[in-house]
């Protein structure tokens, strides 16, 4: 038993791979949670609910988006897709839309549940809430889709995806938690203000970048 423990510790000491990536991941989590908590302090309970919801969406969503590429790994499906006459941009768009749909379905289930647990009724009108969530989902999925395609093929893929994606998503987290909190608190969509514009810009930038660069990510 001690020999195994000694071996494990020695491997870790030599590579420091797990230790350093876990340390960075932990820092990222702390920062993400702080932002989710801070950006949502507008109306107390609505803000807290928005923060909690987006942390849940992020981590559940990352697993789901990663899964959409793990599927392709089995039986070399990705290689097959790339060999077939579809270009990488179609692949990107298909994956992106698929991931956005899955995120939306998940949210349709979790938002009422979250509101129930946090004991706050949803004052928001639903179309406004759906619009804010959709804007968040598109940006989130655009970034995560690109790097999930990469991360599933690295050695340490479980750690790698959040490690790559969370820093890019931090500004999205600040914006979307703020907007979601405002809408949940009963603010109308027109009054949410600049965070919606910025969210839209975030989506536009990363959808375009993903669309243009996806080929470099998936090509063998």
């Amino acid at each position: 038993m001690l020999a195994i423990l000694w071996k494990d510790l020695r491997i870790e000491w030599r590579t420091k791979e797990m230790l350093s990536s876990l340390a960075v991941l932990a820092v990222l989590l702390v920062v993400t949670l702080t932002f989710a908590g801070q950006a949502g302090t507008v109306g107390a309970s609505a803000g807290r609910l928005a923060g909690a919801l987006w942390v849940a969406f992020l981590f559940a969503g990352l697993l789901g988006i990663q899964r959409s590429f793990l599927l392709e790994r089995e039986n070399e499906c990705l290689a097959g897709l790339l060999a077939s006459p579809v270009d990488a941009t179609s692949l990107f768009l298909a994956k992106l839309i698929g991931n956005v749909v899955v995120l939306a379905i998940m949210q349709a289930l979790i938002v009422p549940l979250g509101a129930l647990f946090m004991g706050s009724g949803i004052a928001a009108d639903l179309p406004a809430l759906a619009a804010v969530l959709a804007l968040g989902n598109v940006g989130f999925a655009a970034v995560a889709t690109v790097f999930a395609a990469a991360a599933v093929r690295t050695r340490s893929r479980e750690v790698m995806l959040p490690l790559l994606v969370l820093p890019l998503l931090l500004p999205l987290v600040i914006l979307v938690v703020k907007a979601t909190g405002a809408v949940l608190g009963g603010t109308s969509l027109g009054e949410v203000g600049p965070s919606l514009t910025y969210l839209l810009a975030f989506d536009a930038i990363y959808c375009t970048a993903g669309w243009m660069l996806f080929d470099f990510v998936v090509r063998e």
């Binding site: 500004p171 470099f216 990510v217």
Partner: peptide, 24 residues
């Protein structure tokens, strides 16, 4: 190639980072 894509994504994010933190 992935690292290069990440390098480009990172710099594209800078304007959004700058405007998003202004709400703090």
């Amino acid at each position: 190639r992935w690292a290069a894509v990440l390098g480009i994504f990172g710099v594209l994010g800078i304007p959004i980072i700058i405007v998003s933190v202004r709400i703090l």
